[in-house]
Design a protein around this nucleic acid. Sequence first.
DNA 1: ACTTTTAAGTCAGTCGCATGACTTATCTTA
DNA 2: TAAGATAAGTCATGCGACTGACTTAAAAGT
Lengths: 215, 215
Amino acid sequence: MTRTDRVAATRETILSAAERLFAEHGVAAVSNRQISQEAGQGNNTAVSYHFGSKDALVRAIVRRHTEQIEETRLRMVLRADGSAEVRDWVACMVEPFARHLADLGAPTWFGRFSAQVMTDPAYREIMSREALNSPSLLRAGEELRRRLPDLPPDVRLERQDMVGRLMVHTIAERERALAEGAPVSRESWDRAASGLTDALTGLWLAPVTAPSART
Amino acid sequence: MTRTDRVAATRETILSAAERLFAEHGVAAVSNRQISQEAGQGNNTAVSYHFGSKDALVRAIVRRHTEQIEETRLRMVLRADGSAEVRDWVACMVEPFARHLADLGAPTWFGRFSAQVMTDPAYREIMSREALNSPSLLRAGEELRRRLPDLPPDVRLERQDMVGRLMVHTIAERERALAEGAPVSRESWDRAASGLTDALTGLWLAPVTAPSART
DNA sequence: ACTTTTAAGTCAGTCGCATGACTTATCTTA
DNA sequence: TAAGATAAGTCATGCGACTGACTTAAAAGT
C-alpha cells in the first residue's frame, strides 16, 4: 500500500465517520474531535488537516455522493428525452437518489445526512449549491416546466422548492425506517422511490386554487 | 406589577429569545448561556432555573404555540364536518398553522423553529408528541382516510408522514422568505397556506403506481 | 545506485475559551 | 422575615486552533 493510498484511505475513513455522526446527531452537535476519534485517528487535528474546516468537510461528503447521483441522473434524463409524462421527469429527480442509496448497501447515512445539512441554517447553502444546482436537476426542472405551461411562475417556484425539500426529507425518513430493522433491499428502495414519485407527481399536477376569503 | 407577573414576564422573555435563537442557529448550536444573555438575564442559570433543562425549554416553546393552533384547528375541524372535499381536510391541517403565524405579526420564528426541532435527532420526538399527536390533527387524518378509501394503508401512512413534514418545512421556508424583505401581511400568509393546501391535496389524490421494473 | 532533501501525513500535547452544573450572595415581595 | 427570583462567581470538562516532533514516501542531487 503506497503512501498515497494510505492517505486516501484515511480521508475516506474520516468522510464515512463524519457522514454517519452528522446523520445521527446533526452537524452542529458533532465536534471535529469526535470525528477524528471515530475515524481511529489518535490526534484531534485530522479533520482540519485533511479538509481545512468543518464546512469543507461537509462539502466533501456532499460531493462524494452527488457526483455519482448526477451521473445516473444525467443518463436517466437523456433516456426520458421527449417524454410528455410529468411523472417521468419527476422520476428523474427521485430515482437516482434512491438508487444511489440502494447501491451503497445497508446501512446508509447519506439520506439523513442530507436532511440535516439541508435544514441547518449554517450549512443549507452548501446543499443547494452542491446538489440542487446540478445540470441534470436543472434540466429536469426545465422539462417539467414545459409540461406544465399553465402553472403560474410563482406557484411553479414554490412547488419546485417543495419537491426538493420533500424528496430529501422523505428519503431520510425512509432510510431511518430501514435502519431500524425494516428489510433493506433494492426492492424496498424501489417501492419508496415509486411512492415518492407518485406523490410528487400529484403535487405538481394539483390544480391551483385562489385563496379563499376568511370567515 | 406583581411578583408573579414579573416571573411570568421573565419566562416569556426567555421563551421568545430561545425560540428566535433556535430558529436561527439550530437547537444544538445554541447554549443555555446564550439564551439567558439574550433574554437580558445577568446570570447564566436562568434557563435551568425556570425550565430545568434545554429539553423542557423546547417542550415549553412548542406547547406555547400548539395550544393556540390546536384551538383554531378544532374549531375548523368542527366547521368542516361532513365535507366530502379532500381539500377541506387538508386545509384543516395547514391553515391553523399559517394563520397562527400571521396572527403573531412579523417577525415570526416559530415556523423555522419547528423545522429545526423536527429535523434534530435529539428533539424530533418532542415535536411528534407535542404537535402531531393533537386530537384535531388525528381527527382530520381520520376524516381524510374516509375520503380516500382506495388508498392502500401503507401508502396512506407514507403520505401522512410526507404531508406533515412538507407542511412544516414549507412554512418554515415561507417564513424565512418573509423575514428577508418580502412583504409580511395576512394576505401573504393566506396565499402561502392556499398554495400549500393545493399541493398537499394533489399529493393525497395522486394515483398509486406499481414500482416499475428496472432496466 | 545511493544518499540527501523535501514534503506529506500522523501524533501527542498545550493554549485560551465557552460550556453546563453548581454554589453563594443579594434583592424583592408576599 | 421567610421564600422565591435573580445575580455573580466557581469549577471540571470539552472545544477548536495551534505547535513541534516523528515517520515515511517521493524527488533531487551526485
